[in-house]
Measured scan of single mutants.
Amino acid sequence: KRPMNAFMVWSQIERRKIMEQSPDMHNAEISKRLGKRWKLLKDSDKIPFIREAERLRLKHMADYPDYK
Rank of each mutant, 00 (worst) to 15 (best):
L58N: 13
A62L: 09
Q21H: 07
K59R: 10
K32E: 15
E52M: 05
F49E: 01
L58F: 11
K36F: 12
W10S: 00
D43K: 07
K36L: 11
Q21C: 03
R15L: 03
W38K: 02
S11N: 02
S22N: 13
S44H: 08
W38D: 02
S44A: 14
R37E: 14
L40G: 11
K36P: 02
P3K: 11
S31N: 14
A53H: 05
S44D: 08
M61I: 08
P48D: 04
K17M: 05
R15D: 02
D45P: 00
I50D: 03
R57F: 14
D63M: 14
L40K: 13
A62T: 13
D43E: 12
M61G: 14
R33K: 14
P48G: 03
W38M: 00
A53S: 05
W38L: 00
A6N: 00
D43F: 11
I18D: 00
E54L: 04
P48A: 03
Y67A: 14
I47H: 06
V9L: 14
D24K: 10
M61Y: 06
I47V: 11
R57C: 12
P48S: 04
A53R: 00
L58S: 13
R15K: 13
H26D: 15
D66I: 10
K32A: 11
D24P: 03
A53T: 01
A62K: 13
P65G: 12
K42Q: 11
Y64M: 12
M8F: 10
P3F: 09
F49S: 01
L34M: 01
W38R: 00
M25Q: 03
Y67P: 12
A62I: 09
K17S: 04
L41E: 01
K39P: 01
K42Y: 02
R33A: 15
S44I: 14
R2Q: 12
R55G: 06
H26A: 15
R57E: 11
A53W: 00
F49K: 01
G35C: 15
S22L: 04
E20I: 08
E29D: 12
H26Y: 02
K39Q: 08
E54R: 04
S31A: 15
R57D: 05
P3I: 05
K39V: 06
D66E: 15
R16P: 08
A6V: 04
I47M: 12
N27T: 12
M8S: 12
I50G: 06
M19L: 15
R15W: 04
A53C: 01
E54N: 10
M61S: 13
V9R: 00
M19S: 08
N5I: 02
R16A: 13
R55C: 06
I50Y: 14
P65E: 13
L34C: 01
E54I: 02
I47E: 15
D66R: 13
E52S: 02
I13C: 06
W38V: 01
E20H: 10
A28W: 07
H26T: 15
D24Y: 08
R37W: 02
L58R: 13
K36M: 10
H26L: 11
K46D: 03
N5F: 00
L58C: 07
H26F: 02
S31W: 11
L58A: 13
K17N: 07
L34K: 00
E29S: 03
Q21D: 06
V9M: 07
E20V: 04
F49T: 03
I47Y: 08
R57V: 05
K17D: 04
M61E: 10
M25V: 10
A62R: 13
I13D: 03
H60C: 08
Y67Q: 14
H26R: 13
L56P: 02
R55S: 06
R15G: 05
D43Q: 06
R15Q: 06
Y64T: 14
H60T: 12
S22K: 09
P48F: 06
E29V: 02
G35K: 15
K32R: 12
Q12I: 11
D63F: 07
Y67L: 13
A6K: 01
A53I: 02
N5P: 03
M4G: 06
W38E: 01
R15C: 05
A53V: 01
M8E: 15
S11W: 03
F49H: 10
L41M: 14
R57T: 09
F49Q: 00
P23G: 04
S31C: 13
D45S: 05
Q12P: 01
I47D: 10
Y64G: 13
E29Y: 02
P3G: 09
R55D: 10
K42A: 12
K42T: 13
W10A: 00
M8I: 09
M25G: 02
H60A: 12
L34G: 00
S11R: 03
I30K: 00
D43W: 11
P48T: 06
D43P: 10
K32S: 12
L56D: 05
I18W: 01
K1Y: 11
I18R: 01
R37C: 05
P48N: 04
V9I: 14
K17F: 05
E29K: 02
D24W: 09
L41F: 02
R15P: 02
R55W: 04
L56F: 03
M61D: 11
D66C: 05
A28T: 08
L40C: 12
A62N: 13
I47L: 14
F7S: 14
M8R: 09
D24E: 12
D43Y: 13
M61P: 08
Y67F: 15
Y67W: 06
I30Y: 01
S22G: 05
L34E: 02
W38N: 01
P3L: 08
D63S: 10
R16G: 07
L58P: 06
D63A: 12
M8W: 08
D24L: 07
R2S: 13
D63I: 09
M61Q: 15
I18F: 06
D24H: 14
R15Y: 05
R2W: 09
S11H: 02
D66N: 12
E29W: 01
K32Y: 12
Q12Y: 06
W10R: 02
L41A: 01
H26M: 09
L40F: 06
I47Q: 13
P48E: 09
P3M: 09
M8K: 08
S44G: 05
P23V: 02
L41D: 00
D63P: 10
A62G: 13
M4F: 13
F49R: 00
R57H: 01
M61N: 11
F49M: 00
A62W: 07
M19E: 13
L40N: 14
S11D: 02
L56A: 05
D63L: 08
R2L: 07
Y64C: 12
K46Y: 00
D24V: 04
L56H: 05
K59G: 12
K68C: 07
S22Y: 14
I47T: 09
V9A: 04
E52D: 08
R33D: 15
Q12K: 07
S22W: 14
I50W: 02
M25F: 03
P48Y: 03
R15T: 06
M8D: 14
R33W: 11
